[in-house]
Amino acid sequence: MKRLPIIASIMLLLVLAFPACEVENCPPNSMTYAHFTLVDQNGKTFKTSDTLTVIGQTYIQDSLVCDTFINKENGASSLQLPLSYNDETRFVIAYRSLDHRFVGTDTILIKHHNKPYFTNLDCGTMMFYTLTDVQYTHHRLDSLVMTNPNIDNNEKENIQIYFTVSTTDE
């Protein structure tokens, strides 16, 4: 019991020290992206030898808005692309393959449900998405598989893009 005042003083000091320990819990990335992985016919990730350019497109009141997100990138094995705040976003992937003497494009149309999201007063809002449908052309790519329709700031793979890869491609 003689120690009671000491214990009380320690408790008080601890309490006074608490405000200094406050931390902001904002996520490191407040932007959210659709994560694409390039896979070969066996489902294995590979680095493409093509030079890739990716343009995002969406319509705002009948006018087409475009932005280039990837410009002439070599050796890509995955793509991180932002979706629009509309309910659909189109990505045009332009390939330039020296090995195959191929120049062309594929178009991926993604329909999505947008989810404005709030976690913390200090961090503001973020846009999360749920993918509802994916359509695509297959000039160079073979097919698309949606592996995870939910896009948030956890940076998980959402879509696999299948290509037919010969040994010279890798």
Binding site: G56, I60, V65, F69, S84, T89, P116, F118, G124, T125
Partner: peptide
Amino acid sequence: DVNGPDMKDPNYGDITIPYSY
């Protein structure tokens, strides 16, 4: 209740979405 400024699309031009719940 949570509300805040309109959310502006950072990539695709002038799309804004209100945030108020």
